[in-house]
């Protein structure tokens, strides 16, 4: 279920512009890996390459190698749509489908792909995913109501339920709490910690406390200036990065001297 992701000198481009340069790292399964760094350092760009969402933007491309349990994600005969079915993603702002009920939102990964399932199966998947996203008790009486009627934090957990309903190997979270209040944030953080039991979890965050609270590994990215590519500065166990970083830049950032 949970896969190891290996990046080998990965370069990410928007047309001719090199956004992220030469990243090599191994993301461990059944752990939370946090990407931190100042705005514009390419951490969001990089996380979008892990499920080939990056190439949705016209002119965006990737050079280098990305292996998922040894399989080349950017191989010549790989279908990006299939990659995305195995790598779930949660976005900055909660984005449930406004035309669908809560239940249909959870099942959207199946329904939008025209997969048929029995009623019993559908109910089982819905319950399992909502329980997994710590949302079941709050919404079990109104599964047929529209998902947009929920609070921001509930909507974000609905999006997580939607992502885990298709049983992916990896969950990517792109600043999942930046649009939420502190209580909803705490609920998502708890959930992330539970999710690593089953999934490889990668989270991009602006919030250093959040990274230090929940992640096992932390990658620090930085840019030398605007127009220059983002680079991976340091990648290590989270305690090490926050308490005793090797690089001066990392120390400056985690101690709050810039960014």
């Amino acid at each position: 279920m949970s896969k190891r992701i290996e990046l080998k000198s990965l370069d990410v481009y928007y047309k001719a512009f090199l956004a992220v340069e030469d990243v090599s790292m191994v993301i461990e399964p059944k752990a939370i890996t946090a990407f931190i760094g100042p705005s514009g350092c390419g951490k969001s760009t990089l996380i979008r390459t892990l499920n080939r969402m990056h190439e949705v933007i016209p002119g965006a491309r990737v050079e280098g190698q990305l292996l998922m349990d040894g399989e080349d994600v950017y191989g010549p005969d790989v279908d990006p749509v299939r990659v995305r079915r195995q790598v779930g993603m949660v976005f900055q702002r909660p984005n449930p489908f406004p035309t669908m009920s809560i239940k249909d939102n959870v099942l959207s990964g199946y329904k939008l792909n025209n997969s048929r399932m029995s009623k019993a199966e559908a109910e089982e998947i819905t319950e399992k995913a909502l329980v997994g996203a710590n949302l079941w008790n709050e919404v079990k009486d109104r599964l047929e109501k529209p998902g947009s009627g929920l609070s921001g934090g509930q909507q974000q957990r609905l999006c997580i339920a939607r992502a885990i309903a298709v049983e992916p190997d990896v969950i990517l979270m792109d600043e999942p709490t930046s649009a939420l209040d502190p209580i909803s944030t705490a609920a998502i953080e708890d959930l992330a910690v539970e999710l690593k039991e089953h999934f490889t979890v990668v989270i991009v965050t602006h919030n250093m406390q959040q990274a230090s609270r929940i992640s096992d590994m932390t990658a620090f990215f930085n840019i030398a200036g605007s127009g220059l590519p983002g680079k991976l500065i340091e990648y290590d166990k989270t305690e090490k990065v926050f308490s005793n970083p090797t690089e001066q830049q990392t120390e400056d950032y985690v101690s709050g001297r810039f960014g």
């Binding site: 491309r61 990737v62 050079e63 950017y74 790989v78």
Partner: peptide
Amino acid sequence: MTDTKPKAVRR
């Protein structure tokens, strides 16, 4: 060069 490889499967 990865970007010159044949285009991936089209559905």
